[in-house]
Design a protein around this nucleic acid. Structure first.
Lengths: 121, 121
DNA sequence: GTAACGTACAACCAAATGGTTGTAGATGAG
DNA sequence: CTCATCTACAACCATTTGGTTGTACGTTAC
């Protein structure tokens, strides 16, 4: 599979979730070591509820998952979802590398530096 | 340089700019072939001003650049900025792959393999 | 059992977002 | 010159976002 099934709305959610420094830090942290929501909340200068909301945004984007452990909710970063986002960007770059394959532009505009224009009888 | 100088606010802008399907499409389009703002505007079901705003967001994030050509403003996608965003995601993934190397007890990290576990008498 | 902890969720608020319309300035075409 | 085109930008509006506080509930510790 080149890019697995991600709707535009899914991609919207992923990039939106990554467009916040606190959320990126939560992903970074929970990728290396899972943590409870309150452990995360202690790390940032905002209320518990605010951190809870950030985690919810990340979870909605599939960038972290939560599971229960006693009374705690353990948050774990999902590297696979990040890999999907990276693949999307790689696709864009690939599109750029192949930008000259649009040959119909050549017909209208031979451009400078074309030493040997094709003769057409 | 591993990651060139991008402030957190820069990264915020890049991912926020990518968190919209119309904007991603503009990037896709202008990566393969540059286009004027009005050419772009014709492609979407919204006002010229709305497209103009999207282009401004992309430009603020460094994902496209604009230059004048007569009375037109030509928009061109910037693959280098996309590469930077991709590198950030790659960094996160790398962090994940090395998540077991965090043995903070091991101050002088001997690296993977741990050939000689310390004896404690 | 009771108290403390961890979480969920609602209600509220200021600011940002994404769209609109309208106006005005440059530039190219006839 | 005159007119149409392309762009910039302001003003406005509904919705979303990112934060707050407060309340309620399940779980662990004592």
């Amino acid at each position: 599979m080149v890019v697995d099934e991600l709707s535009q709305a899914d991609v919207d959610r992923i990039f939106h979730a990554l467009a916040d420094a606190t959320r990126r830090d939560i992903v970074r942290r929970t990728l290396t070591q899972e943590a409870s929501v309150s452990e995360l909340a202690r790390a940032y200068d905002m209320s518990f509820a605010a951190v809870q909301k950030h985690v919810a945004v990340l979870e909605g984007a599939g960038l972290v998952s939560k599971h229960s452990r006693g009374r705690e909710r353990i948050v774990r970063g999902d590297a696979a979802q990040i890999a999907r986002a990276r693949a999307l960007l790689a696709q864009l770059e690939e599109l750029w590398r192949s930008r000259f394959s649009r040959l119909d532009a050549v017909l209208a505009d031979p451009g400078p530096g074309v030493p040997d224009p094709p003769a057409h009888p």
